[in-house]
Structures are given as structure tokens and as C-alpha cells.
């Protein structure tokens, strides 16, 4: 075969494939026929992320992309290079308001919301004030005072913790009903998924739910919540085995691209090295990190390389 060409940088998209709640599409029957993508401050990263307002800004959604490398779409009689699938899903506007409330709360004063939710970098944040579930549910995270027709708010850490705890509990209930694998980091890759999870504890569920909530709050709030939930010391499974850039292409070969059951057998590491395709090398690499975590999990902390 001929030599492969380098990938050119992606061109700016002018079309997008997305999955959105029926209610967003149905909202065209209401007075405001349009929805709007707006960049807002992401409460977890402090950077900008895309959100969608619909129904005259009464509802807000976040945008996440399913983004796998090497994907493109055929759409009818067209090809779209950008193979992402965007998910538009509801977001609780309180998560997006919290950073502003906390910042203002540092002064310890009651303030009107309009004064609090202001952001030069992300002027779109004003729209959050029209969302049905924002002003009505502020009492979950703030003390309220009414003076005449004016409402004033002051951030409450205590209330916020209670509110987040309720969220965590609801997520745990949902996780238990689902087949999402929450066990202590064992399923580190999509290749290994142990279906039966006898050993999953209540703490595993809580940790997983805490991790999910942490995607929507700042790092220090995440730590506070961790304490509040009395979860065990953060063992940070991600940092235990940092993927080293210098790690050589695996010397532990993999036989075929399809048979993942082999990854679970203890002796696969002894197979003699064979010439591997690029794809197999990739699999081998992925497997390696996964395998470490596996063995670390099953064997009582001692050695792991000599099996």
C-alpha cells in the first residue's frame, strides 16, 4: 500500500449532528420559536462551555459531545467530516449560578440576584435568571430575604451541602437500577467490563455519584462535599497509574483484535512477542493499564508483575 497522508487540521463545521430532548424540538409551538447556543462559564473548569437555552430561556441544557477519534457521518447524500454526536441534556441551572453566588457570598451580604449574576466574560449568564428552576429553587443553596417586592439572597454552604447530598442520593438510586459499572475503578477501559458486581459497596456508589456531581461544581466544593458525605480518603484512581508518555509500545502482545477474553487470563503475558499491527499495539497499550488496575484490585497489594 502507499504511504499514508497526514491528517489535515479540521475545517470549521457548518453542520452538527445532535440528540436533543423532544421538548426542545416541540418548543417551536410556543411563543419563542428559537433556541440559542450560548457560551457560559463551566462551574467545574471555570472555562467556557456551550449550553442551549430554549422555550424563551425558560429551559437550559448542556452540550456534551460523543467524540471518538476517526469518525465521520453520512447524512443523506452528504458527508460530514466531524463525526461527533452532540448530546443536548438538561442541566440544573443552580449549578451554573453557584459560582456567582459563592463569589458574592464571600462578602456575607444579602444581594439581589441581578447584581450577583453578572459576568463580563460570559454575558449570556443573564439568561439563567429566566430559567424556571433557577430563581424558584435558590432556597436550596442560599438564604433568602424579602423586602417589599424585592428578593435578596446570600449563599449558604450548609444548605448547598444538603442540596448536593440529596442529588448524590438520587444518583445512587438511579445507578443501582442501571447497569452502569461503578465498582472501584476496575473497568478502566471499555474493553473489560465485568457484568456481575457482587463486590460493589454502598461507598462505591457514593463515590461514583460524588464524582459525577463534581463535574458540575468547583474543585473546592467537591472536596467539601466529599467531607460532608464522610467518604474515605480520596485515593484518586486516575493518578495511581499515570499513563506515561514514555511507555514503550507494549512488549506484551495480544493475539487477535477480537478475543478480549484473553485479556483476563493470567498467562497471556507469557505469550512470545509477535509482530503486531498498529491497531493491536494500541489494544495492547490500552490493555496494559487496565490489567494493572485489575491485578492491583484482586491481589492484596503485593507484587503484580510476576504473574
Amino acid at each position: 500500500m502507499t504511504t499514508k497522508k497526514k491528517r489535515s487540521p479540521p475545517t470549521e463545521s457548518d453542520s452538527w449532528v445532535l440528540i436533543a430532548p423532544d421538548s426542545v424540538v416541540a418548543s417551536r409551538k410556543t411563543r419563542d420559536p428559537d433556541a440559542t447556543f450560548v457560551s457560559l462559564r463551566n462551574p467545574a473548569t471555570d472555562g467556557g462551555s456551550q449550553y442551549l437555552f430554549s422555550n424563551g430561556d425558560m429551559q437550559v441544557f448542556e452540550v456534551k459531545a460523543f467524540s471518538e477519534d476517526y469518525r465521520s457521518w453520512f447524512i443523506g447524500q452528504r458527508v460530514q467530516r466531524d463525526g461527533r454526536l452532540l448530546y443536548v441534556t438538561p442541566v440544573d441551572p443552580l449549578f451554573l449560578l453557584l459560582p456567582y453566588l459563592r463569589k458574592a457570598g464571600a462578602e456575607g451580604k444579602f444581594q439581589p440576584l441581578q447584581q450577583v449574576v453578572m459576568d463580563e466574560d460570559y454575558p449570556g449568564c443573564m439568561r439563567l435568571l429566566s430559567c424556571t428552576h433557577s430563581v424558584d429553587s435558590l432556597h436550596h443553596v442560599a438564604d433568602e430575604k424579602e423586602v417589599g417586592s424585592m428578593k435578596f439572597h446570600r449563599y449558604s454552604q450548609e444548605k448547598t451541602m444538603e442540596w448536593l447530598q440529596k442529588k448524590v442520593e438520587r444518583i445512587v438510586r438511579m445507578l443501582k437500577k442501571s447497569d452502569i459499572s461503578v465498582g472501584g475503578g476496575v473497568k478502566s477501559s471499555t474493553f473489560i467490563r465485568v457484568k456481575e458486581e457482587n463486590h460493589v459497596t454502598e461507598v462505591d456508589y457514593l463515590c461514583y455519584a460524588h464524582g459525577l456531581i463534581s463535574e458540575y461544581i468547583s474543585e473546592d466544593l467537591s472536596k467539601d462535599l466529599h467531607k460532608h458525605l464522610q467518604l474515605p480518603e480520596m485515593s484518586s484512581p486516575n493518578k495511581a497509574e499515570p499513563p506515561s508518555k514514555k511507555r514503550k509500545l507494549s512488549d506484551k502482545p495480544v493475539e487477535a483484535g477480537e478475543d478480549y477474553t484473553k485479556f483476563n487470563s493470567a498467562d497471556f503475558a507469557r505469550k512470545p512477542p509477535k509482530k503486531m499491527t498498529a491497531a493491536q499495539k494500541t489494544l495492547a497499550k490500552v490493555d496494559k493499564t487496565g490489567m494493572k488496575t485489575m491485578s492491583a484490585f484482586f491481589s492484596p497489594k503485593v507484587k503484580q508483575e510476576n504473574n
Binding site: 463545521s13 452538527w16 447556543f37 457560551s39 463551566n42 473548569t45 472555562g47 467556557g48 462551555s49 456551550q50 448542556e62 452540550v63 456534551k64 459531545a65 460523543f66 467524540s67 471518538e68 452532540l86 448530546y87 452502569i180 475503578g185 473497568k187 478502566s188 477501559s189 471499555t190 461514583y208 464524582g211 459525577l212 463535574e215 484512581p237 486516575n238
Partner: peptide
């Protein structure tokens, strides 16, 4: 890891 396992990420710009 719910997101990294599913190749889901936030979108900065459309």
C-alpha cells in the same frame, strides 16, 4: 470515568 469511558466531553465551541 463515566464520561471518559463513553468518550463524552464538554463542548467549548460549536
Amino acid at each position: 470515568r463515566f464520561f471518559s469511558e463513553r468518550k463524552l466531553q464538554s463542548v467549548d465551541t460549536l
